[in-house]
Design a protein around this nucleic acid. Structure first.
Lengths: 160, 160
DNA sequence: AAAAGATCATAAGCAAGCTTATTATATTCT
DNA sequence: AGAATATAATAAGCTTGCTTATGATCTTTT
């Protein structure tokens, strides 16, 4: 049985890979005065300007408090800004500042380079499938977290 | 160009997936009084008993100091033990204790369950290929970290 | 054999995750 | 309208990563 002997390492292999990539990407991103975690936030803000923090945290699969502190740093550096919402005074909405947009521009080459390095030797079609599968796994885990214990049910349904 | 538009998200997608899985696995492992990080170490010790800490850190793709603290906790809990090497007094070698072996036994079901949940909807052949690709990416990144700046060279060589 | 250099484990202190709790608002329910 | 509940952001304090530095050994060089 393949799944038992090999695939069961998926969990730990993913962790090891993540550690490696994090160290690598952090080091490279450091040349721009930013960390990989901050960079991910900045990139997401670019794609969805005007989002509130809660929504952004969800997009990034992280807890709001974790995001708050990353945003603090991005604001301190002058890359983004919080603007309070007119109709709901609890809410902050996030916008890129000029410096942030410029930084992302400078870093876009690095992003492709890191990806190319990681995916070297994997042809584009496979790489594309890989990413699709990672997205699906994200979805699977997100469901499992939200409906704990429902996995048995779901599996049974497929044969019902 | 596929790589530019889709695959360039590989970097951040991986981070998001890791965050999700970490939270999920930590929560489940918590029922056994262990964290996912500690569990990974314990599992690796089982596979290579008698290793010294430096070697184990390398296997786990983490820094020795990070491992030291995880080992501290595993020792405190009585799951593994450090035994000093007879011929080199700097070295500690790691061994499972009875309780550690028992715990791993109890947790093996959880490991399969987590993996199955994550990989649901992906057929075994695809899952197997996915894991192989993750291993290759690990190798790619490891090389890039060890020979910084050599990526251009390596790419050119393939056409030389 | 002594000095210089490498290696093993650990310490101190920072980043980025988390849980739980707090404060300030909005919203919903009588 | 007032009370109860829900939501947005943040705070405090923990874990697990990291870098850089230190002490104790081993190894190599002279």
């Amino acid at each position: 049985m393949v799944r038992g002997s090999v695939d069961a390492n998926f969990l730990f292999t993913l962790g090891e890979l993540h550690r490696l990539i994090r160290a690598y990407a952090d080091k490279e991103a450091g040349r721009f005065g930013i960390t990989r975690a901050q960079w991910a936030v900045l990139a997401k803000v670019e794609r969805s300007e005007g989002t509130k923090q809660t929504e952004l945290a969800e997009l990034l699969e992280m807890q709001p408090i974790t995001l708050t502190r990353l945003i603090d740093k991005l604001c301190d550096a002058g890359w983004i800004e919080r603007r309070s919402d007119a109709s709901d005074r609890r809410v902050n909405r996030l916008y890129l500042r000029k410096a942030g947009r410029a930084l992302l521009g400078k870093m876009s080459g690095l992003k492709s380079e890191l990806t190319a390095t990681a995916l070297e030797g994997i042809n584009p079609a496979d790489a594309h499938r890989l990413l699709t599968q990672l997205e699906q796994i994200k979805e699977n885990v997100r469901n499992a977290v939200q409906n704990p214990g429902a996995s048995q049910l779901r599996k049974e349904q497929r044969y019902g």
